[in-house]
Computed example of a mutant assay.
Amino acid sequence: MMNPPQQRLKIGLSACFSHADPKRALFTNKTLQYVEQSIAHWLMSAGALVVMVPCPTGETARGDVTLKHYAEWLDGMVMHGGSDVWPGNYGEVPLREAWAGDRIRDLYDLAVVEAFEQQGKPIFGVCRGLQLINVAFGGTLYQDIETQHPGAMRHRDPGTYDQHFHDVDLVPGSRLARMYPGQERVRVNSIHHQGIKQLAPGFDIEAWSWPDCVPEAIRRNPGQGRSYIAATQWHPEFRAKSGAVLDDTPILQDFLAACELYRSRPPRMGRSPLHIRDRASRLLRQALLRRH
């Protein structure tokens, strides 16, 4: 028997941005916020209700809805894949203009992570989501793995896109490894050229790419009452045509179980990853006001 809507988990999904473009024929010069349907369908496959969390600020903003309202209402948050992270967020300048990323989306994503962390709600990151989480909590990135990481293999192929794969080694004893007993080396998709250089404090690496050893999965150490935050560099929502990739089901179930556990417990407030409460939200609002 299907669960009624009020019993289903409500999972937030961060927005992708297509910024205003006067040359675009449809929605000319309008900012678009959207989700890629595979990740929404992935979450829905387990019965969760998926809600895109739109950026509440910008030139058309009205009303008093904030990201905090979404963080209080929803049971968990998934950070979407997408564009590069601006190197300035981790103290570097872009080595190439093409690697400058999307600074407005970064501010939005940082504000989302901040809002859900302050509520102590579970957060899961995918691809860019992993990179953004790492930066939000004090880590750094390779702006381009092939350029900066000696001996790196190719982690992104524009031609094959989500059908480009490599192996990863699961860290023995990690929570991720325990989800896949007897599977030490597994195959995943690889659709990124940036990656973790320095891991954020308080996080553990749960998988490494093989053979070049780039972090492929991270999880926040659960000590001291910290809330659930985990992420994968690969896209668990993308399926291989051959079917020869790691089963995504345990990862999804683990995240949703954390959301269910949180919902059954009294609210527990977290801390801002940026150390100043609501700093990311204020920076986002100021940046969008300056643009217009």
Rank of each mutant, 00 (worst) to 15 (best):
K23F: 06
A40L: 10
H41Y: 08
S45F: 09
M52Y: 00
C55R: 05
R62K: 15
G63R: 09
T66M: 02
A71D: 08
G82E: 11
W86R: 10
P87H: 12
N89P: 01
G91A: 02
E97G: 07
Y108C: 03
D109S: 12
V112C: 12
Q118A: 14
Q119E: 15
K121P: 07
G129D: 02
L130D: 00
Q131A: 00
H149A: 13
D157Q: 10
D157E: 06
Q163A: 04
D169Y: 05
L170V: 08
R185P: 07
N189M: 13
I191G: 03
I196Q: 04
Q198G: 07
P201H: 02
F203N: 01
W208V: 11
D212Q: 07
I218V: 13
I218N: 05
R219L: 02
P222S: 04
G225R: 12
S227Y: 07
A231K: 02
W234F: 13
P236F: 09
E237G: 11
R239V: 13
R239L: 15
V245D: 12
I251P: 00
Q253D: 15
L256T: 00
C259M: 03
Y262L: 15
R263H: 08
R263W: 10
R265K: 15
P266K: 09
L274Y: 12
H275F: 11
Q286W: 07
Q286H: 09
H292V: 00
